[in-house]
Amino acid sequence: MVNILVKEREIVVPGQELAEGMDYLPSEGAFREGDKIISSKLGLFNLDGRLIKVIPLGGKYIPKKNDSVIGRVTDVGFSGWRVDFGWAFNMNVSLKEGSRDFIPNDADLSQYYAPGDLVVAKIIKVMSSKIIDASLKMPGCRKLGTGRLIEVESSRVPRIIGKQGSMISMIKDATGCNVVVGQNGLVWISGSDLENEMKAEETIRKIENEAHSEGLTDKISAFLNVKPREIVENDIQ
């Protein structure tokens, strides 16, 4: 017996049987037990070839290598910085990952990044959930100025960015705001005035709330009163 028990994009819950038989393979958010594939998450069912996946609808961000995240510098030591990015443990940025410029050994590191500074960092190594190394010198990494910092469900980040950055570009164009989205669900918005920043946040909240609805790009472009960019949208992130 080979059988898929739920429909594509159906909401499934932990412990729910998704498929029977050995023809399919469990991927993220699913596991095999005997000849059954079972969901381990609250999310949307997705069948991709032979892979069965559950796209989570919520849940805390878990650090992954190569993720760009927004964080705040908490400590400056002799050999580097520590950055809080919303995970259970802070990440480390070593001296050599701090800047593209040469940092002399006796430099005052707080001249580069001081406690309280908001930064975009890239995770370069996850040893365990406790030991995470990041870089502040890779492309896209930088210090962020004063801005509107909002928290979104990290599972919605791909939708907020959109295919090839289409969604975020649309928001930037329509509101004139500079927007940085961290994979960890932190979004930084900086514009010419409060009204534009609020509009950008409102748009992002709308995407967050309707992340899995069909025709999201059209809805958002209508909301922002702009034409969507010429990019074909794939409904599953």
Partner: peptide, 11 residues
């Protein structure tokens, strides 16, 4: 727990 996205084998 399910709402928090914690992986669960069953409810």
């Amino acid at each position: 727990l399910a709402d928090a996205g914690i992986p669960m084998k069953d409810l």
